[in-house]
Design a protein around this nucleic acid. Structure first.
Lengths: 209, 209
DNA sequence: GTATTTCCCTAGCGGTCGCTACAGAAAGAC
DNA sequence: GTCTTTCTGTAGCGACCGCTAGGGAAATAC
């Protein structure tokens, strides 16, 4: 764990005792993100990982634990570097409607960004797994996102921003289904423009205020 | 291949020469469908298959070819037994809108039917595969479905059933994204009622006629 | 310098993968 | 009955899986 004293000049440059690591851990992790993102947990073998990360298997195990622990760290870092646009939209937009609209529009861009795998790692990387726990951890993450949509919508209903008879659960589930459908479409070859058109017409289901 | 003479009594009961197969091929295929449906192509091993099908590996290979050929046959038979509700809706309903509405409503039932895996095999069984061809065959199938929606919508536009400025491609892609999103939701634990509410509000995007 | 700590590389562990050789069993043909 | 054909069960192939023991390499501590 990083310590607060890190900013203290006395301890700042405290080099560890033994032979230093010969690779950059963050760079290797980024390569692992891309590999898991593209092929999923099960279909990415440890030898695939060592090849794209440019390190040997013992280095991987020393730096990241086992394959499972590396994947968990990959999911966390993916959430920080690529998967945070939804949370940001929810936090920054004034209404649930604006947040979902922005999220869907940004998803069209994010899910088809050139130079990296299409679609969302959280949606696709842990399907068809031998390990049920890995599947479950990402499923929990997806369902937590929908729950976040729902509570945001309920807040808007309470504030009079949405009609009192709005079905918050169905509206939240619709946003989740759209995100997941868009991610699948991106994987299946849909372009950014096609996903943007999709996001636009999908917003028609929101009740008029 | 089945011959037309099958109905001819002379050839009808032409038993094959050697030792007869000791299991029912259709029953074994049905078990394979359920296994692939639940766990996907890659995560279903041949020993999983032989166990649930109740036969030995050599019998499986003699009757179905290899794992890949068995999966292709599974996909075809799945389409006949479980995945045909969309085609039926497209063929039987008078308008594209009615067809999509019926398809989404039936998907809510089909994707959460008790006693069998949730969601759609075509959408989920070939993700995260080592073999790119297997992934591609199901992706082609998904994209062909969306193309079928689109041509049905175009026909309705030509017939004046839908406004002339309707974006057929976006509307078709929306139907595909909804089906795929609903399938994912079903896998993630959504109930039939929740998916039905989803299907209902999703139809609000269709232009007023 | 020597001692200690940590990392990297080679090699290989036990296990599972998809698949099959081979011999015996069960049917029809004669 | 014998011969031929086809299916079934055992047993195991080579390849890959995730993972690690063990020895040498590279840094700091003294």
């Amino acid at each position: 764990m990083e310590r607060i004293e890190e900013t203290n000049p006395q301890v700042k440059q405290a080099k560890p005792r033994g032979r230093p690591r010969s690779f950059d851990r963050a760079t290797a992790l980024e390569k692992a993100i891309l590999a898991f993102w593209e092929h999923g947990y099960e279909a990415t073998s440890v030898s695939d990982l060592t090849r794209v990360m440019g390190i040997g298997a013992p280095s991987l195990y020393a730096a990241f634990g086992d394959k499972r622990a590396l994947f968990e760290e990959v999911v966390l870092e993916y959430g920080r570097r690529y998967g945070s646009f939804g949370d940001r939209a929810l936090a920054e937009e004034p209404t649930a409607r604006a947040a979902v609209e922005r999220m869907l529009r940004e998803a069209a861009v994010e899910y088809t960004a050139p130079g990296r795998p299409h679609g969302c790692l959280v949606i696709h990387a842990a399907t068809n797994c031998t390990s049920a726990e890995v599947e479950e951890s990402l499923r929990d993450r997806r369902n937590a996102n929908i729950a976040a949509f729902e509570s945001r919508i309920r807040a808007d209903i309470a504030a009079g921003e949405l009609p009192a008879d709005t079905d918050a659960a169905a509206l939240a589930r619709h946003a989740g289904a759209m995100i997941q459908g868009m991610s699948q479409q991106a994987r299946d070859g849909a372009s950014r423009e096609e996903l943007e058109a999709l996001a636009e017409i999908a917003m028609a289901i929101w009740p008029r205020t």
